[in-house]
């Protein structure tokens, strides 16, 4: 009986020691990983040109970053405005543009390619991590810079700025509906009493077929039209 109790006590002791060691190990690993993370970050900043020039290095480097959960596209905006610095700035805006595109395309099947610039901003900063977060105005400029590449990514100006990441033109009626959904996230025909029903339906149906709008049939027979981009996306 005594031996049995002793055995039990030893077992518990081992268990306790074991979990202590595990905790210590995890802590060490975490701080090592953090250190590695930091060195890698400064490596990116210092060797950017080399990484960009050498495709093999770039591929290996990107794979490594992905494995440890670091976004390889971190660059910072230069403070001065001489030629070298402005190159750096171009890089900075390009990186944000790539990140914004990644976000818009990543969410596209949920939003139909529509996303408010504020939501995009939140996702971009999530991608970059807190230490490298960027102001909204820089995101705006980065996306605006993409205009020269054609109509792949455009900003719909208006009270609420939306990013459109599919190559299409929105007409005035469609824009009017998007604008009206601001705040609540949905529209219904009774918000458009100055339009006739056909005009409203045509605009709404075109947005449904783009995947930008979901139909909500209320139990009382009324219908509301919801934009995932304006009601579902805020992270």
């Amino acid at each position: 009986m005594k031996a049995l109790m002793e055995q039990k006590r030893m077992k518990e002791l081992y268990k306790k020691k074991g979990s202590e060691m595990e905790g210590e190990f995890k802590k060490n690993l975490k701080s090592q990983l953090q250190q590695f993370h930091q060195s890698l970050e400064s490596f990116i900043t210092n060797n950017r040109a080399e990484i960009n020039k050498n495709p093999n290095l770039r591929q290996e480097f990107y794979d490594l970053c992905r494995e440890i959960g670091l976004d390889p596209l971190i660059s910072s905006k230069g403070a001065c405005s001489d030629a070298r610095e402005s190159d750096e700035n171009t890089q900075y805006y390009n990186d944000i543009a790539v990140q914004a595109t990644t976000v818009c395309l990543g969410l596209k099947n949920r939003t139909g390619g529509l996303l408010s610039i504020e939501d995009c901003w939140k996702w971009v900063n999530k991608l970059r991590g807190q230490r490298h977060s960027v102001p909204l105005s820089d995101l705006y400029r980065a996306i605006d810079n993409l205009k020269v590449l054609g109509n792949g990514m455009t900003i719909i100006e208006g009270e609420s700025k939306m990013i459109l990441s599919v190559p299409m033109e929105l007409n005035l009626d469609q824009r009017g509906i998007i604008e009206a959904a601001k705040g609540t996230g949905f529209v219904s025909y009774d918000m458009f009493h100055q339009w006739n029903k056909t005009r409203f339906d045509k605009a709404v149906e075109s947005l449904i077929s783009e995947g930008m709008v979901w139909v909500d049939a209320l139990p009382n027979g009324k219908i509301q039209y919801w934009f995932p981009a304006q009601s579902l996306m805020s992270s």
């Binding site: 077929s209 995947g211 139909v215 909500d216 049939a217 209320l218 509301q224 919801w226």
Partner: peptide
């Protein structure tokens, strides 16, 4: 999210 409960007409 309310429209999640209505079967959507757009097939995608």
């Amino acid at each position: 999210w309310p429209p999640f409960y209505t079967l959507q007409p757009n097939l995608d």
